[in-house]
Protein backbone atom coordinates (compact mmCIF):
# COMPACT_ATOMS: atom_id res chain seq x y z
CA UNK A 1 0.00 0.00 0.00
CA UNK A 2 1.17 3.45 -0.88
CA UNK A 3 1.00 6.69 0.93
CA UNK A 4 1.70 9.45 -1.57
CA UNK A 5 3.22 12.79 -0.61
CA UNK A 6 2.61 15.54 -3.16
CA UNK A 7 5.33 18.12 -2.96
CA UNK A 8 6.50 21.21 -4.79
CA UNK A 9 9.78 22.94 -5.30
CA UNK A 10 9.45 26.66 -4.63
CA UNK A 11 11.78 29.64 -4.58
CA UNK A 12 12.75 30.62 -1.06
CA UNK A 13 10.21 33.42 -0.97
CA UNK A 14 11.86 35.14 1.96
CA UNK A 15 14.63 35.88 -0.50
CA UNK A 16 12.42 36.87 -3.43
CA UNK A 17 11.78 40.46 -4.32
CA UNK A 18 9.27 41.80 -6.74
CA UNK A 19 10.57 43.85 -9.62
CA UNK A 20 8.59 47.09 -9.26
CA UNK A 21 8.83 47.85 -12.97
CA UNK A 22 7.78 44.57 -14.53
CA UNK A 23 5.70 43.32 -11.61
CA UNK A 24 7.32 39.93 -11.78
CA UNK A 25 9.23 37.95 -9.24
CA UNK A 26 12.98 38.54 -9.35
CA UNK A 27 14.03 34.94 -9.24
CA UNK A 28 17.66 35.04 -10.29
CA UNK A 29 20.01 33.78 -7.67
CA UNK A 30 17.20 32.81 -5.37
CA UNK A 31 17.68 29.28 -4.09
CA UNK A 32 14.97 26.68 -4.43
CA UNK A 33 13.65 24.83 -1.45
CA UNK A 34 11.00 22.22 -0.85
CA UNK A 35 7.80 24.02 0.01
CA UNK A 36 8.05 24.06 3.83
CA UNK A 37 4.53 22.71 4.36
CA UNK A 38 5.35 19.81 2.07
CA UNK A 39 8.28 18.74 4.23
CA UNK A 40 5.66 18.12 6.90
CA UNK A 41 3.68 16.06 4.41
CA UNK A 42 6.77 13.96 3.73
CA UNK A 43 7.44 13.57 7.43
CA UNK A 44 3.88 12.46 8.16
CA UNK A 45 4.03 9.93 5.33
CA UNK A 46 7.27 8.56 6.74
CA UNK A 47 5.73 8.28 10.19
CA UNK A 48 2.86 6.30 8.72
CA UNK A 49 5.41 4.10 7.01
CA UNK A 50 7.10 3.50 10.35
CA UNK A 51 3.77 2.60 11.94
CA UNK A 52 2.01 0.67 9.22
CA UNK A 53 4.70 -0.31 6.76
CA UNK A 54 3.31 1.77 3.89
CA UNK A 55 5.49 2.42 0.92
CA UNK A 56 6.03 6.16 0.59
CA UNK A 57 6.05 7.77 -2.84
CA UNK A 58 6.78 11.46 -3.32
CA UNK A 59 5.60 13.09 -6.52
CA UNK A 60 6.08 16.53 -7.88
CA UNK A 61 5.22 18.33 -11.08
CA UNK A 62 7.73 20.82 -12.35
CA UNK A 63 10.64 21.55 -14.65
CA UNK A 64 13.55 19.07 -14.76
CA UNK A 65 15.37 20.91 -11.98
CA UNK A 66 12.50 20.08 -9.64
CA UNK A 67 14.30 16.80 -9.11
CA UNK A 68 16.11 18.64 -6.32
CA UNK A 69 12.94 18.48 -4.23
CA UNK A 70 12.63 14.76 -4.89
CA UNK A 71 16.23 14.16 -3.89
CA UNK A 72 15.51 15.94 -0.66
CA UNK A 73 12.52 13.62 -0.19
CA UNK A 74 14.76 10.60 -0.77
CA UNK A 75 17.26 11.93 1.72
CA UNK A 76 14.48 12.07 4.27
CA UNK A 77 13.67 8.44 3.55
CA UNK A 78 10.89 8.08 0.96
CA UNK A 79 10.94 4.87 -1.04
CA UNK A 80 9.97 6.07 -4.46
CA UNK A 81 9.82 9.37 -6.32
CA UNK A 82 8.21 10.49 -9.56
CA UNK A 83 8.92 13.70 -11.41
CA UNK A 84 6.05 14.81 -13.65
CA UNK A 85 7.74 16.90 -16.22
CA UNK A 86 6.77 17.83 -19.74
CA UNK A 87 6.60 21.06 -21.70
CA UNK A 88 2.89 20.40 -22.01
CA UNK A 89 2.53 20.67 -18.23
CA UNK A 90 4.15 24.11 -18.10
CA UNK A 91 2.31 27.26 -17.06
CA UNK A 92 -0.35 25.28 -15.24
CA UNK A 93 -2.68 26.81 -12.68
CA UNK A 94 -4.07 24.81 -9.77
CA UNK A 95 -6.74 23.16 -11.86
CA UNK A 96 -4.38 21.92 -14.56
CA UNK A 97 -1.83 20.90 -11.95
CA UNK A 98 -4.31 18.83 -10.01
CA UNK A 99 -5.34 17.06 -13.20
CA UNK A 100 -1.79 15.94 -13.92
CA UNK A 101 -1.17 14.85 -10.34
CA UNK A 102 -4.45 12.98 -10.30
CA UNK A 103 -3.54 11.07 -13.42
CA UNK A 104 -0.15 10.21 -12.02
CA UNK A 105 -1.64 8.88 -8.80
CA UNK A 106 -4.09 6.81 -10.81
CA UNK A 107 -1.18 5.34 -12.75
CA UNK A 108 0.64 4.63 -9.51
CA UNK A 109 -2.41 2.93 -8.04
CA UNK A 110 -2.33 0.36 -10.81
CA UNK A 111 0.81 -0.94 -9.06
CA UNK A 112 -0.67 -0.91 -5.59
CA UNK A 113 -3.52 0.62 -3.68
CA UNK A 114 -3.20 4.27 -2.51
CA UNK A 115 -5.36 4.71 0.59
CA UNK A 116 -3.74 7.99 1.63
CA UNK A 117 -2.39 11.09 -0.06
CA UNK A 118 -0.77 13.84 1.96
CA UNK A 119 -0.12 17.39 0.80
CA UNK A 120 1.12 20.51 2.55
CA UNK A 121 -1.68 22.95 3.35
CA UNK A 122 -0.50 25.34 0.64
CA UNK A 123 2.65 26.46 -1.15
CA UNK A 124 4.54 29.54 -0.10
CA UNK A 125 4.77 30.89 -3.64
CA UNK A 126 1.17 30.50 -4.82
CA UNK A 127 -0.61 30.38 -1.46
CA UNK A 128 -3.80 29.01 -3.02
CA UNK A 129 -4.24 25.77 -1.08
CA UNK A 130 -6.25 24.42 -4.00
CA UNK A 131 -4.18 21.63 -5.52
CA UNK A 132 -4.74 19.16 -2.67
CA UNK A 133 -8.50 19.55 -2.62
CA UNK A 134 -8.46 19.47 -6.44
CA UNK A 135 -6.82 16.06 -6.46
CA UNK A 136 -9.19 14.76 -3.78
CA UNK A 137 -12.19 15.81 -5.80
CA UNK A 138 -10.89 14.29 -9.02
CA UNK A 139 -9.99 11.01 -7.33
CA UNK A 140 -13.12 11.01 -5.25
CA UNK A 141 -11.13 10.74 -2.04
CA UNK A 142 -12.41 12.19 1.20
CA UNK A 143 -10.86 15.58 1.73
CA UNK A 144 -9.35 16.36 5.14
CA UNK A 145 -7.68 19.75 5.11
CA UNK A 146 -5.60 21.59 7.72
CA UNK A 147 -4.82 18.43 9.67
CA UNK A 148 -2.58 18.91 12.68
CA UNK A 149 -2.90 15.40 14.09
CA UNK A 150 -3.82 11.99 12.83
CA UNK A 151 -5.76 10.59 15.75
CA UNK A 152 -6.43 7.13 14.48
CA UNK A 153 -6.17 5.01 11.38
CA UNK A 154 -7.90 1.70 10.94
CA UNK A 155 -6.75 0.29 7.65
CA UNK A 156 -8.85 -2.85 7.90
CA UNK A 157 -12.10 -1.01 8.42
CA UNK A 158 -10.92 1.80 6.15
CA UNK A 159 -11.42 4.51 8.72
CA UNK A 160 -9.40 7.56 9.67
CA UNK A 161 -9.87 10.12 12.43
CA UNK A 162 -7.96 13.41 12.26
CA UNK A 163 -7.87 16.69 14.07
CA UNK A 164 -8.20 19.83 11.96
CA UNK A 165 -6.70 23.07 13.12
CA UNK A 166 -9.15 25.81 12.28
CA UNK A 167 -9.18 29.42 13.26
CA UNK A 168 -9.67 29.50 17.01
CA UNK A 169 -10.83 25.92 17.33
CA UNK A 170 -10.09 22.33 16.54
CA UNK A 171 -12.34 19.90 14.79
CA UNK A 172 -12.05 16.16 15.08
CA UNK A 173 -13.47 14.38 12.09
CA UNK A 174 -13.83 10.80 11.05
CA UNK A 175 -13.81 9.73 7.47
CA UNK A 176 -13.62 6.68 5.31
CA UNK A 177 -10.45 5.86 3.43
CA UNK A 178 -9.09 6.57 0.87
CA UNK A 179 -8.43 10.14 1.95
CA UNK A 180 -6.39 13.11 0.99
CA UNK A 181 -4.92 15.11 3.86
CA UNK A 182 -3.47 18.59 3.74
CA UNK A 183 -1.30 19.20 6.76
CA UNK A 184 -0.26 22.24 8.78
CA UNK A 185 3.18 22.81 10.23
CA UNK A 186 2.11 21.86 13.74
CA UNK A 187 1.56 18.24 12.75
CA UNK A 188 5.18 17.19 13.17
CA UNK A 189 8.81 18.14 13.06
CA UNK A 190 10.38 17.03 9.78
CA UNK A 191 13.33 14.75 10.31
CA UNK A 192 16.86 15.78 9.49
CA UNK A 193 18.29 13.66 6.68
CA UNK A 194 20.88 11.09 7.64
CA UNK A 195 24.07 10.94 5.64
CA UNK A 196 23.56 7.49 4.11
CA UNK A 197 20.19 8.53 2.71
CA UNK A 198 21.68 11.82 1.49
CA UNK A 199 24.26 9.87 -0.45
CA UNK A 200 21.54 7.61 -1.78
CA UNK A 201 19.58 10.69 -2.81
CA UNK A 202 22.58 12.09 -4.66
CA UNK A 203 22.98 8.91 -6.65
CA UNK A 204 19.38 7.99 -7.30
CA UNK A 205 17.92 8.03 -10.78
CA UNK A 206 14.82 10.22 -10.77
CA UNK A 207 12.11 8.64 -12.94
CA UNK A 208 10.34 11.17 -15.16
CA UNK A 209 6.78 10.69 -16.28
CA UNK A 210 5.87 12.86 -19.22
CA UNK A 211 2.65 13.26 -21.13
CA UNK A 212 3.53 10.49 -23.53
CA UNK A 213 3.14 8.30 -20.52
CA UNK A 214 0.18 9.99 -18.85
CA UNK A 215 -1.59 10.65 -22.17
CA UNK A 216 -3.71 13.56 -21.00
CA UNK A 217 -5.48 15.78 -23.51
CA UNK A 218 -3.09 18.65 -24.04
CA UNK A 219 -5.96 21.12 -24.16
CA UNK A 220 -6.83 20.35 -20.54
CA UNK A 221 -3.39 20.72 -19.03
CA UNK A 222 -0.56 23.23 -18.80
CA UNK A 223 -1.13 26.80 -19.86
CA UNK A 224 -3.88 25.79 -22.27
CA UNK A 225 -5.83 24.03 -19.61
CA UNK A 226 -5.49 26.84 -17.10
CA UNK A 227 -8.41 29.22 -16.80
CA UNK A 228 -6.55 31.38 -14.25
CA UNK A 229 -4.35 34.21 -15.52
CA UNK A 230 -2.04 36.32 -13.38
CA UNK A 231 -2.89 39.90 -14.21
CA UNK A 232 -0.47 41.67 -11.95
CA UNK A 233 1.94 40.97 -9.13
CA UNK A 234 2.82 43.84 -6.90
CA UNK A 235 4.00 44.74 -3.43
CA UNK A 236 1.24 46.30 -1.39
CA UNK A 237 1.58 50.02 -0.87
CA UNK A 238 3.37 50.96 2.29
CA UNK A 239 1.23 52.13 5.13
CA UNK A 240 1.62 55.68 6.23
CA UNK A 241 4.16 56.32 8.96
CA UNK A 242 3.18 57.01 12.52
CA UNK A 243 4.06 59.71 14.99
CA UNK A 244 5.74 58.42 18.08
CA UNK A 245 6.55 60.21 21.30
CA UNK A 246 6.37 63.90 21.88
CA UNK A 247 9.44 65.64 20.51
CA UNK A 248 8.55 68.94 22.07
CA UNK A 249 7.83 67.99 25.62
CA UNK A 250 10.12 65.01 25.90
CA UNK A 251 12.77 65.06 23.17
CA UNK A 252 14.93 62.50 24.96
CA UNK A 253 12.08 60.06 25.35
CA UNK A 254 11.04 60.53 21.73
CA UNK A 255 14.57 59.98 20.49
CA UNK A 256 14.76 56.86 22.58
CA UNK A 257 11.50 55.53 21.17
CA UNK A 258 12.64 56.32 17.66
CA UNK A 259 15.98 54.58 18.08
CA UNK A 260 14.29 51.56 19.62
CA UNK A 261 11.85 51.40 16.76
CA UNK A 262 14.60 51.65 14.17
CA UNK A 263 16.65 49.05 15.99
CA UNK A 264 13.73 46.67 16.24
CA UNK A 265 13.18 47.00 12.51
CA UNK A 266 16.86 46.36 11.84
CA UNK A 267 17.14 49.68 10.06
CA UNK A 268 20.31 50.69 11.82
CA UNK A 269 23.49 48.77 11.27
CA UNK A 270 23.71 47.95 14.98
Amino acid sequence: MYVVACIKQVPDTTQVQIDPVTNTLKREGVPFIVNPFDTHAIEESLRLKDRFGFRVAAITMGPPNAEYALRKAISMGVDEVILLSDRAFGGADTLATSKVLTEAILKLSTKDEVPLIICGRQTIDGDTAQVGPGIATRLNYSQLTLVDRIEHIDIENRKIIVRRKLEGRYEIVESILPSLLTVVREINKPRYPKVPSRLLADESEIPIWDNKFLKLDEQTIGLKGSPTRVVKIFSPEREKGEIIGDGLKDPEGAAKLLIEKLLSKELLPF
Binding site: D12, P31, K189, Y192, K194, V195, P196
Partner: peptide, 22 residues
Protein backbone atom coordinates in the same frame (compact mmCIF):
# COMPACT_ATOMS: atom_id res chain seq x y z
CA UNK B 1 24.50 10.89 16.38
CA UNK B 2 24.08 13.58 13.72
CA UNK B 3 25.07 11.76 10.57
CA UNK B 4 23.74 8.27 11.19
CA UNK B 5 20.88 8.86 13.61
CA UNK B 6 19.79 12.48 13.14
CA UNK B 7 19.65 12.58 16.92
CA UNK B 8 20.56 15.90 18.45
CA UNK B 9 19.09 18.60 20.68
CA UNK B 10 16.06 20.08 18.98
CA UNK B 11 17.50 23.59 18.67
CA UNK B 12 20.15 22.33 16.30
CA UNK B 13 17.66 21.41 13.60
CA UNK B 14 17.13 25.08 12.80
CA UNK B 15 20.83 25.79 12.98
CA UNK B 16 21.69 22.98 10.57
CA UNK B 17 19.01 23.99 8.08
CA UNK B 18 19.75 27.68 8.36
CA UNK B 19 23.42 27.20 7.64
CA UNK B 20 22.79 24.78 4.82
CA UNK B 21 20.07 26.82 3.14
CA UNK B 22 20.83 30.41 4.08
Amino acid sequence: LVEMESKFPEELLNLFENIEQR
